[in-house]
Design a protein around this nucleic acid. Structure first.
Lengths: 136, 136
DNA sequence: TATTACCCTACTAATTTAATAGAGTTTTCA
DNA sequence: TGAAAACTCTATTAAATTAGTAGGGTAATA
């Protein structure tokens, strides 16, 4: 399942990408329009800022804004930051690789074989979608 | 993440599919060979039996066996039984559809748009793989 | 008829997720 | 300059899920 964190993060990014100009948008506005708990959204936006997707401006008239144009923001990067590994098992993960305790040999493991294909197909989708592609 | 239940279930099915004949295999044998907690595996095999993938035989010389040939067992069905929905959000699920509380309109939802593609790509993989395809 | 092996229920520990609370800091505008 | 707006950060918690554990019960076979 997709975590709420990722879902809300994607919605917030899409909301920012849909803005006519690049003026900062307040957390409260995004939270209200997208039906997200404001406090929870705060922490999500904070992590998106720390990972270089968003910039923020404090004080009156402040808020969050995209640091890049929507077409420069790949879903691959967004998903990795919000959701973590794209692979469903660590042993087929490109960025979060780990061996399985129970598996003596990855090359003959059925699960490995299947999940490798699933990872590649998901990556295909994420690589072919930028933030621009998913806003209506 | 793939649950251990699914992982173990797949491994057990693959183990049974790799048997030279159709004789029942004991839980204890599968558990040992695949490094799975026997009690946990019991409950997984039970659910695979109840959903029509496995048959069982009690008493001495008993155990579990496949009810169909490996090439007749689609990963789509296996994944749905073991892992549940293939979609990452209920609003794009074919078999477990639910609306989102927060989302006013699926058609303009960015998350929906992206997750629809992810679901389709995953389904593609599962539909193109039978149990026979993933055993080494 | 004893043994083997499946069947079933209930409980629990650990982990993750999704918040919630509240205090603190920075910036801006009047 | 000062008050309000708005972001920043830490800590705590409630709920849900997962992964397993315990233990007894039941059916079938040699």
């Amino acid at each position: 399942m997709l975590s709420k964190k990722t879902k809300y993060g994607l919605k917030a990014l899409a909301y920012l990408a849909s803005q006519p100009d690049k003026k900062p948008v307040q957390i409260s506005e995004i939270a209200e329009k997208e039906n997200i708990s404001q406090k929870f959204l705060e922490s999500i936006l904070l992590s998106l800022r720390k990972t270089g997707f968003l910039g923020s401006k404090k004080g009156k008239g402040g808020g969050y804004y995209l640091l890049k144009t929507p077409e420069e923001i790949s879903m691959t990067d967004v998903m990795r930051v919000l959701e973590g590994p794209i692979a469903m098992v660590p042993c087929v993960s490109l960025n979060f690789y780990e061996t399985c305790d129970d598996c003596p040999d990855e090359n003959t493991c059925s699960v490995h074989k299947l999940m490798l294909q699933v990872r590649d197909s998901a990556l295909d989708v994420y690589r072919n979608n930028t933030l621009k592609d998913i806003i209506s």
